[in-house]
Computed example of a mutant assay.
Amino acid sequence: MAGPTNASRADVLRVLGVLKFVTTDQIQLISLPHLNHRHADKPTAAKRKAARTATPTAALADMRRHRLAANGGSTGAGETLRHRTLKGLEGAATELQRPLSEMGATARGAGVGGATSMTVNETVVALLRSKPDMAKLATDPPELRAAAQAVVKTPPGVGRIGSHWTRAPLPVAGSWSTPGKGGAQADRPCPDRTPGRHPAAVH
């Protein structure tokens, strides 16, 4: 992988590593929020969305060629869901600095139904409240920078994408890394990354 998509690979892997399967729109909202402002002048919502998501879409295309990501399932609105492959799972573990044993499965086909999982994703997006990077807007028009700065000044969210877990096991038997039968899975923020400590689930 080379060129502009190479710089986005780590961002995409971190999102896929946490959310398991995701839309390009969600990747952009989490990792590249400055693009919300840069493409606000496009004439239609569809064109604004296409421009906003062009970078993660290109990165995912390269990642599919390198067998790091794949397409699988769709949302109720017909958006393609992207998920990590086994090779992508290993890459996401490296980017998130998590043991591979804590990364879960590749989640292939898990997003076919879509609705419940998209609700989880949207909750994580809302918790993160990702702020635009003003350095990436340094050469943009003053009015665009002013709109982005107004977002920067809003209250912060909860952690970064690497501060969250989805489909995390809550074992009633076994251990965190090798849970026994009968446990549940939860989605949760993880503000404490101290090894061996796991926060309570978010319900």
Rank of each mutant, 00 (worst) to 15 (best):
G3P: 10
N6G: 11
N6Q: 13
R9L: 11
R9I: 13
R9P: 07
V12D: 08
V18M: 10
K20S: 06
F21P: 04
T23C: 03
I27D: 04
I30L: 12
H34G: 05
L35Y: 12
N36P: 08
R38M: 14
R38L: 15
K42V: 09
T44R: 09
A46R: 10
R48T: 07
A50K: 06
A50P: 02
A50V: 04
R52A: 06
R52Y: 02
T53P: 02
T55Q: 10
T57W: 00
A61D: 09
M63T: 02
R64I: 04
A69T: 01
N71K: 14
G73E: 00
S74C: 02
L81H: 10
R82H: 15
L86R: 03
K87T: 09
G88N: 00
G88S: 00
G88Y: 00
G91P: 02
A92L: 02
A93Q: 01
T94Y: 03
E95I: 01
L96A: 01
P99Q: 06
S101K: 05
A105L: 06
A107T: 00
R108V: 09
R108C: 05
G109N: 04
G109I: 07
A115S: 15
T116M: 13
T116S: 15
S117A: 15
M118F: 09
T123V: 11
T123H: 11
T123E: 06
V124D: 01
A135P: 09
A135R: 14
A135C: 08
L137C: 10
A138R: 15
A138T: 12
L144A: 08
A148E: 02
A148W: 01
Q149G: 03
V152C: 06
V158T: 09
V158R: 05
I161T: 00
I161Y: 00
G162H: 05
S163C: 01
H164N: 02
R167D: 05
P171G: 00
V172P: 03
G174Y: 04
W176N: 07
W176I: 10
S177F: 11
T178H: 12
T178G: 05
P179T: 08
K181V: 14
G183M: 11
A184P: 04
D187N: 15
D192G: 10
T194E: 14
A200G: 08
H203V: 07
H203W: 07
